[in-house]
Lab assay of single mutants.
Amino acid sequence: MDEEYDVIVLGTGLTECILSGIMSVNGKKVLHMDRNPYYGGESSSITPLEELYKRFQLLEGPPESMGRGRDWNVDLIPKFLMANGQLVKMLLYTEVTRYLDFKVVEGSFVYKGGKIYKVPSTETEALASNLMGMFEKRRFRKFLVFVANFDENDPKTFEGVDPQTTSMRDVYRKFDLGQDVIDFTGHALALYRTDDYLDQPCLETVNRIKLYSESLARYGKSPYLYPLYGLGELPQGFARLSAIYGGTYMLNKPVDDIIMENGKVVGVKSEGEVARCKQLICDPSYIPDRVRKAGQVIRIICILSHPIKNTNDANSCQIIIPQNQVNRKSDIYVCMISYAHNVAAQGKYIAIASTTVETTDPEKEVEPALELLEPIDQKFVAISDLYEPIDDGCESQVFCSCSYDATTHFETTCNDIKDIYKRMAGTAFDFENMKRKQNDVFGEAEQ
């Protein structure tokens, strides 16, 4: 370990593993360490099931009705991949897709007046949907046509809207959309967690709705994908990429100290040895004095023996409960997957309800979601602090990732990755940087 590296990475969460992969592909010498004996950090999948019970201090362990412990891979952080989103792009560019198998999530649902409705995925579904009345549908269709044709580089498509100054509230007004449709559009399509976006320039919202539609167009059922064997497969896929390009991995490796000289990182000390480096990437748990708390998320993992009611017996789905429907500031989400994804025993389902904490009784906040899941065989409640770095790391060369937020997709995580890359490399992130180099010394032969 007593060696000189360009970059040392602490923690094998998804953000850290993707950055480690990119740095290795770009010719950097990388050492990647984790104090845990497993990959994934906060974003790991726990197996066998006995391990999950232990982690949540349920000492009696799983009953026999849960089947074989080894058949379970339970995500600690519930997220899906947008089919046309940035993480899929990263997987394709790096060819990490060859280590993973994905399934399309069967449906996306939205909560309205105590019931759940399928988010329409085709024009026919939209016309048949009970989510809105006849005239509302016509106006909504006009709005969707506007979004589909919108091109930020072609003012002819703006229809009198200025993407940089017109607020989204004004765009909704222009198409005369009612409150329910606005809730549905902002939260189930643009996937905002709160209503803060309404008074911001509309460009980002329009682009988010386009991303949803384009992702949906790829597979038809929903815009989301999920990897077989759980999300823990993602960091491992990128760790393989890093290793192929010469990255060194050490799990179960305690970090005793991060060594600084004149305010700059110069190395990491572990078990009496020092590895030197020019730059350091880590998750917040490794540098508690360089991060601040930015809120909390509650996630309740529920094991069920039945599909969720009114989802047409889907073996995977997402449910969004827009905040307006339950008098909150932030949406509540449910991600459900099952034995069909090799993450649970035969006939079992895993539904994870999550939201940003707003009160001193977080469990009560998630109740509307839990009511949709009854009866629940077993619950595991996790309340996590969200951390963000206190500075950009440019001076110390210590670059810290943000905690995983309450969103049900990876777009915010990818933004964090691109942002850290830019601060480390001094140049904007470009997907081309992730391409495997042809015929290089570490390149794998085609399968």
Score class of each variant (00 low, 15 high):
8 I>L: 05
8 I>C: 11
11 G>D: 11
17 C>L: 03
18 I>H: 05
18 I>F: 07
19 L>Q: 06
24 S>E: 02
26 N>G: 02
26 N>M: 04
28 K>T: 10
30 V>M: 03
31 L>M: 00
37 P>T: 04
39 Y>Q: 14
42 E>G: 09
44 S>A: 11
45 S>R: 14
51 E>G: 12
57 Q>C: 14
59 L>G: 14
63 P>L: 09
64 E>A: 03
69 G>V: 04
72 W>G: 04
73 N>T: 11
76 L>V: 12
83 A>T: 09
86 Q>E: 13
92 L>V: 08
97 T>Y: 15
99 Y>L: 03
104 V>E: 08
107 G>C: 08
107 G>S: 10
111 Y>H: 08
113 G>S: 15
115 K>S: 13
116 I>Y: 13
119 V>N: 13
122 T>S: 12
124 T>S: 07
125 E>D: 07
126 A>D: 00
128 A>V: 11
128 A>P: 03
130 N>G: 13
131 L>R: 03
135 F>W: 14
135 F>D: 13
140 F>I: 02
142 K>E: 07
143 F>K: 01
149 N>V: 14
153 N>M: 15
162 D>C: 14
164 Q>N: 07
172 Y>S: 05
176 D>Y: 05
179 Q>W: 14
187 H>Q: 06
192 Y>C: 10
194 T>K: 13
194 T>A: 09
200 Q>L: 14
213 S>Y: 12
216 L>M: 02
218 R>M: 12
220 G>C: 06
232 G>C: 10
233 E>K: 02
234 L>I: 12
240 R>V: 02
241 L>F: 00
244 I>P: 14
244 I>L: 13
247 G>D: 12
247 G>A: 12
253 K>E: 06
262 N>R: 14
262 N>C: 14
267 G>A: 10
269 K>H: 06
274 V>A: 06
275 A>P: 02
278 K>A: 12
280 L>A: 09
281 I>D: 15
282 C>F: 03
284 P>V: 15
287 I>A: 15
289 D>E: 06
291 V>E: 05
293 K>M: 09
298 I>E: 03
300 I>W: 12
307 P>S: 09
308 I>T: 05
309 K>D: 13
312 N>S: 10
314 A>P: 03
316 S>Q: 03
321 I>T: 03
331 D>I: 13
333 Y>D: 06
334 V>E: 01
335 C>F: 07
339 Y>R: 15
343 V>M: 03
347 G>V: 03
348 K>G: 12
348 K>I: 14
348 K>D: 12
354 S>C: 05
358 E>G: 05
359 T>D: 14
359 T>K: 07
364 K>T: 11
365 E>P: 05
366 V>E: 00
367 E>K: 07
369 A>F: 06
369 A>I: 12
376 I>S: 01
381 V>M: 09
382 A>T: 10
391 D>E: 02
394 C>H: 07
395 E>Q: 13
400 C>V: 08
401 S>W: 01
403 S>T: 10
404 Y>N: 13
406 A>E: 15
410 F>V: 08
420 I>S: 02
421 Y>N: 04
421 Y>Q: 06
424 M>L: 10
424 M>K: 05
426 G>I: 14
427 T>R: 06
429 F>D: 02
431 F>A: 02
433 N>D: 11
433 N>Y: 05
435 K>G: 15
435 K>R: 11
435 K>T: 09
444 E>G: 11
